[in-house]
């Protein structure tokens, strides 16, 4: 981590630009620019452990429904987004799939499962 790093807090629409000053060991010594306490917490978390939910698609091999949307069951470290994308390219699912079904369990040992977010076959008429 560089001695100074700026993070935009997304805790609320204000979007404070928060600058963190760190010492040589990488410990945050000062935070400037956050308008509230909650935001400071968010920014510290974002500096230490930036996590994101990944959403993507996996192949089905079906012509009329070629892609099944998926997500990680919980946020994963930002650096894992691209590696998980490569995993999604390797799998092919078979019907029937229900939203919430696990497509890859504990994907790349992140602790998150890759789960389907839609049903396949999709619900048709006759709702």
């Amino acid at each position: 981590m560089s001695p100074r790093e700026t993070v935009i807090c997304i805790g609320c629409p204000l979007g404070c630009r928060v600058t963190a000053v760190t010492d040589r060991k990488g410990t945050v010594t000062a935070l400037k620019g956050a308008e509230c306490k909650q935001g400071q917490k968010h920014v510290l978390e974002e500096l230490r452990n930036p996590v994101r939910t990944l959403t993507a698609t996996v192949r089905t091999g079906d012509e009329s429904f070629p892609l099944l949307p998926v997500r990680t069951s919980r946020p994963v470290l930002k650096v894992m987004l691209r590696p998980i994308m490569r995993e999604t390219a390797k799998v092919k699912v078979k019907p029937p799939v229900k939203a919430g079904d696990i497509v890859i369990a504990n994907v790349l040992k992140t602790g998150a499962d890759l789960v389907a977010t839609a049903d396949w076959p999709a619900p048709g008429e006759g709702v």
Binding site: T55, P69, R71, A99, T117, A118, P123
Partner: peptide, 10 residues
């Protein structure tokens, strides 16, 4: 996600 929100309403 969008599909999940959709499913909840469907």
């Amino acid at each position: 996600t969008g599909p999940e929100y959709e499913k909840a309403f469907i």
